[in-house]
Amino acid sequence: MMSRAKHYLRAAGAIFRRDLRIFFRYPVDAIFWVFEPIMWLTPLHFMSRSFAVGGQNLGLAGYTGTSDYMAFLVLGGVIGSYVSSVMWSMGFSLKNEMDLGVLEVNWLTPVPVVIQLVGRSLFNLTHTTIKIACTMSLVWRIFGFSITGSIWPAFLTVLPMIIGLYGLGLGIAALVLISKNANNIIDMTHFMVNTLSGREFPITVLPKFLLGFSLAIPLTYGYDAIRGLLLGTRTLLPVATEQLLLVVVMAISVFSGYLVFRRIERRCRATGNLAHH
């Protein structure tokens, strides 16, 4: 039992190194990857400028209690990056491996596929964290923003959220395996989840029927709690309640995501959908 756990840990480490190496073998991508968030942030920055009165976003303050839209946005971007990271590493990379023709060879090794997926997203999490650190410092230099609260409670809030995202990621991986053209579906859900969970704006501006959707997405509470902790914004629910909610959702999502993935994996072995030419 112990030796098997060690074997799996080592396998995860090997996957990590593999992805790291391949990442640096595409140097253009590696450089570009730091600037990509800037491209997302800049238009929103200018939007906020066009609504600013005396350099302050009073409109935003009316909804949230902070007039610093950049800080609001940067925190949204940080969490959003983790969301995408898990979705990418679990879902799309699987398709990528299929196209490269190496998926089957990996499945031929005596390491369960779920472990392989987790291994690969460990790399993604690390690489996202470094990316976030780089862009935050860049954004801070270019646009300026200030964060007042302390980091650790926010970190402890993010943690169950990220683990919970793995459950979702497994679900997406399953979808990628059964649907040859899942990109669009994933793109759309990804976008809707990111938009409606309040990455870029306080969800209180949403019309009633969309607000309902938004409140049903657990991520919403993650964004909200972290902004409450770090920027002192008014939260939807007390922060402690939101944190508890995230932990409960984490447990459910990981469990069900695992079950779904296992079922689809079995199905793929029955229909021979693994190879993709």
Binding site: R10, A14, I15, Y26, L100, V102, N106, P110, V111, Q116
Partner: peptide, 18 residues
């Protein structure tokens, strides 16, 4: 069936660990 962006040795070390 092997990663083209890795070297022969890196491929073998990777799969060996698995």
């Amino acid at each position: 069936c092997v990663y083209w962006k890795l070297t022969g040795r890196e491929n073998l070390e990777y799969f060996g660990t698995l």
